[in-house]
């Protein structure tokens, strides 16, 4: 397990990117970490590119500025790869998690322009969410994939936290769907 991690999420308004960012932070907090989760501030418009950030640390977090050198970059909507440089600031050891079908995403490493030292993980989060939740909400599976790639906490810790938090607000069916989506996201990420 690592001591500190910084994540940058790229999504489009309405895909639950900010929610995923928050849910992951809450799970890390329940696991005993200091956390930050915050979106890039601005008017919120459905479909517009948005960014959100996580910092997770074993020590208190005092900085209040966007993540500049993300250890993990999550691309919730792969169409963003055509218009946004998702590699900005990513260090040599960074990992990219992209929501796309690992068997049908072309040469994703080349498209991202990932360095040989950087990891690229594809996960069909949209497909998983349709199968588990009945609609394309790729955020839930991506929380699972981020959990695996981050090595910050166990899958069980994330599932336990989601179960507690979601049960307060949603039906058992929705909670179960999200748990299954997160578990599958954890297991079905494919490193390219």
């Amino acid at each position: 397990m690592v001591d500190a991690i910084a994540i940058r999420w790229h999504g489009r308004g309405g895909q639950g990117t900010v929610t995923a960012c928050k849910v992951f932070a809450e799970a890390c907090l329940s696991d005993g970490h200091y956390v930050q989760a915050f979106p890039e501030y601005g008017p919120e418009r459905a479909g517009a590119p948005i960014k959100a950030y996580n910092r997770v640390n074993t020590k208190p977090l005092r900085g209040h500025y966007p993540v500049l050198r993300p250890d993990i970059v999550v691309v919730v909507d792969s169409t963003l790869l055509d218009c946004i440089d998702v590699t900005e600031g990513a260090p040599d050891g960074a990992a990219f998690i992209v929501n796309c079908n690992p068997k049908n995403c072309g040469d994703l490493r080349a498209k991202i322009k990932a360095k040989p030292t950087q990891r690229v993980v594809a996960v069909d989060a949209s497909h998983i969410s349709i199968a588990t939740l009945g609609r394309p909400m790729p955020n839930a599976p991506l929380i699972g994939t981020v959990t695996k790639v981050s090595d910050m906490l166990s899958l069980q810790a994330v599932l336990d936290d989601i179960k507690v938090n979601f049960s307060k607000k949603f039906s058992q069916k929705v909670t179960q769907g999200n748990l299954e989506a997160t578990r599958r996201g954890y297991e079905e990420g494919v490193e390219l």
Partner: peptide, 12 residues
Amino acid sequence: QDGFITSHSIAN
């Protein structure tokens, strides 16, 4: 408090 920077950020 600082608008968005802390008002909208999740932290401990």
